[in-house]
Amino acid sequence: MVKKQEKNNFNAYTKAVLKRFTNPQHFGEIKNPDGVGQVGNPQCGDIMKIYLKVKDNKIKDIKFQTFGCVSAIASSEALCEIAKGKTIEQAKKISNQKIVDKLEGLPSVKVHCSVLGSSGLKKAILDYEMKHGKSSFKKDLGEKLYKKELEKLDKEANGEHH
């Protein structure tokens, strides 16, 4: 692992990153999405927006819009590849490390881009669950807990680079 990291600090980007960055297949908007999640802010430099279409509890379609660098765009694309076809339960478990692994490593200063991906997806799933009454939160506390959870995910997304 250490070796991998060192290698990345010199070469900056792996082939797996560059392939996804230059030729992403999942960018754009989904009309009438079932869930949307946006993370990041201009202060941090990157903004990532994830759109979901869900059918039979599975992610049928997923797209991204990203204002960001090479790693941010590649992370968005890798996330979509991983999440597509997964059940909601499986998708919730997608960690940023899964994205890093799919990309065969990211430069250490760019690992936060993968965190944007994993928290962006979680936020989109949360949005889907709230909109479609699938939330596990109790009804009366729903809105409050929902907001709390959103804040938590925003913190997670921004946390690594402050």
């Binding site: 560059l18 960055f21 230059t22 204002f67 960001g68 660098c69 941010a72």
Partner: peptide
């Protein structure tokens, strides 16, 4: 983002 343009 400028860095993405640079990457391309």
């Amino acid at each position: 983002e400028g860095e993405a343009i640079g990457g391309f």
